[in-house]
């Protein structure tokens, strides 16, 4: 009973968020709707990175590579071969998964800062390909004129239907990743994050768990890339840049790593800051910097992480006459 009492709040919040996202389009100007669409796409990417950073404790600086692979799959297949949505989706996710499978073999030999450096280098390999394989990628000029998705049962040429498509993609990615982290597999990843040696002693195949987690994160990152290319109608090496990888990392840190939904919120905040605040002031970087510093100083666990522990602390205290004392042992795996 006490356990459900604690869980009720986040669940209501999740349902509330879903309702707000469903009902949003008529209430927003088309510009805000595009920003929300963009935030959802980045949200998928940030959630996929959270599987590595938050749940497995691996900080990757090359996550933009998978975004770029998904995006370039769409760019090349649609502009050259007129491929429909399903083909590009399959190829994009597969390309990212294959790349992650190869990169994982190289990167997972190391941990900590060395892992960071290797993923950075591998990310730059993809950037280099995008930049220099001109016959395929048009190099620096990028691939323009990517159409809106075709082959779907309804037309998504307009902003609102496209928004719903992205919302479905976001929900799908969320459900998949949530299932992964809730499953024994995900719990093992958390165990590895907390103490790799202990998990090894217990008989877990640590490397294989990390490897599979790495590939899943890459594949979902590629999925985000597919949607990203359709959203922008344009693909360029900027998608594979180190700056993009860093930005995703900051989204996860800002939203709260290891919370899955937190990184999506982090993505929303950063997208709004970059695109909306910069409309009002050219000093938007100052505000962005303030938000980062504020997060580090006041909420090192990110927005959602801090909110959760704050709520949990409140509930632990006896509340009012009813005196519902919540079992301090309760809460989710990372509550």
């Amino acid at each position: 009973m006490t356990e459900t009492a604690l869980l009720r709040h986040p669940r209501t919040a999740a349902i509330g968020a879903a309702l707000v996202l469903l009902a949003a389009p008529p209430l927003l100007s088309s510009f805000l709707l595009t920003l929300l669409t963009q935030a959802l796409v980045y949200g998928i990417l940030a959630m996929s990175l959270d599987l590595l950073l938050g749940y497995t404790g691996l900080s990757s600086l090359g996550h933009a590579a998978y975004l770029a692979l998904g995006a370039y799959s769409v760019g090349i297949l649609t502009t050259r071969h007129g491929a429909n949505f399903w083909v590009t989706l399959m190829v994009g996710v597969l390309a990212a998964a294959v790349a992650a499978a190869i990169f994982g073999l190289l990167a997972l030999r190391a941990t900590g800062v060395y892992f960071l450096m290797i993923t950075l280098a591998l990310g730059m390999v993809i950037w280099g390909l995008a930049h220099r394989w001109v016959s395929m990628t048009q190099g620096d000029n990028g691939l323009s004129g990517v159409p809106r998705p075709t082959g779907l049962p309804w037309s998504v040429a307009e902003g609102v239907p496209f928004y719903y498509l992205v919302l479905i993609a976001f929900a799908l990615a969320f459900v998949v990743l949530r299932t992964v982290v809730r499953a024994p597999f995900g719990q093992t990843l958390v165990g590895i994050r907390e103490s790799e040696t202990r998990m090894r002693t217990l008989g877990y195949h640590v490397w294989l768990h990390k490897y599979i987690g790495f590939v899943i994160a890459g594949a979902v990152g590629g999925f985000a890339g597919v949607i990203w290319a359709y959203y922008n109608g344009f693909v360029s090496p900027a998608d594979a840049e180190l700056a993009t990888s860093v930005e995703v990392l900051l989204m996860v840190a800002l939203g709260g790593r290891g919370t899955l939904f937190g990184p999506a919120i982090g993505a929303g905040v950063i997208v709004m800051l970059k695109n909306l605040v910069s409309v009002y002031t050219h000093r938007w970087l100052l505000i962005l910097g303030t938000v980062y510093i504020g997060t580090i100083v006041y909420a090192p666990d990110g927005i959602v992480g801090t909110l959760r522990s704050w709520l949990a602390a409140r509930r632990r205290r006896p509340v009012g006459v009813a005196g519902v004392v919540v079992n301090p042992e309760g809460g989710g795996p990372h509550g």
Binding site: S29, S30, F31, T34, L35, Q38, G142, N232, G233, F234, S236, A238, D239, K274, N275, S278, V279, H282, W284
Partner: peptide, 18 residues
């Protein structure tokens, strides 16, 4: 401000038009 980035420029162009 395009921030020199194509995706930001695309977003801002949308904002200007819409």
């Amino acid at each position: 401000d395009t921030q020199g980035q194509p995706q930001v420029a695309l977003t801002k162009f949308r904002k200007l038009v819409e």
